[in-house]
């Protein structure tokens, strides 16, 4: 009978497997971090020494890359992620009001997760949907011409 491994060991084995699978690619670090985040939803701190070991880099180098890029997160996100565009085109169509509305409704600030673990709120600087502003991205789906009412509907659908 195979012994059930503790969860952390499983995560670390997954990280190592993903790192080794991509290690041969030129400039492998970003593809590896993406693979880890795609699989686990975030890049745990325990990934840093494993990836460093596989790529023969220092931990500082890997940590530096993980923390440089806004897209990589080191804590598990909520079940869904709402990216709210804060850039100029959306500002011209009421993104600041939308931001206030969503923060008040969800009682979270940017980079925070609701207390029920359902939703993480992240800022984003342009989704390339600027002729249908304001825009948000819920997980991987972009929504345009978003009003506070429309946003409430979208959030209710993933509740």
């Amino acid at each position: 009978m195979a012994k059930v491994e503790p969860r952390s060991a499983t995560i670390e084995a997954t990280i190592r497997a993903l790192a080794e699978a991509n290690a041969g690619r030129p400039g492998a670090l970003l593809p590896i971090l993406h693979a880890i985040q795609d699989e686990l939803g975030y890049v745990p701190e325990s990934a840093v020494p494993i990836v460093a070991n596989v790529l023969n880099l220092s931990r500082a180098e890997v940590h530096g890359v993980v923390t440089f890029y806004h897209f990589f997160r080191t804590r598990p996100p909520g079940k869904h992620t709402l990216y709210l565009c804060r850039a100029e085109a959306c500002q011209s169509m009421g993104a600041r009001e939308l931001e206030r509305h969503v923060k008040e409704t969800l009682k979270v600030d940017f980079h925070e997760t609701t207390s029920d673990g359902r939703l993480t709120l992240e800022p984003v600087y342009c989704l390339g949907n600027c002729a249908c502003s304001p825009a948000v991205m819920l997980d991987e789906d972009v929504h345009g011409r978003v009003t506070p009412e429309r946003l409430d509907q979208l959030l209710a659908e993933v509740r």
């Binding site: 492998a28 970003l30 890359v65």
Partner: peptide
């Protein structure tokens, strides 16, 4: 290659650093 949410990587030399797996 998928970027990771840094505006500066639209600057060509920062982009090259990123492609090489660096900050």
């Amino acid at each position: 290659r998928e970027a990771a949410g840094a505006y500066i990587c639209g600057e060509e030399t920062a982009l090259l650093e990123s492609l090489e797996g660096k900050r």
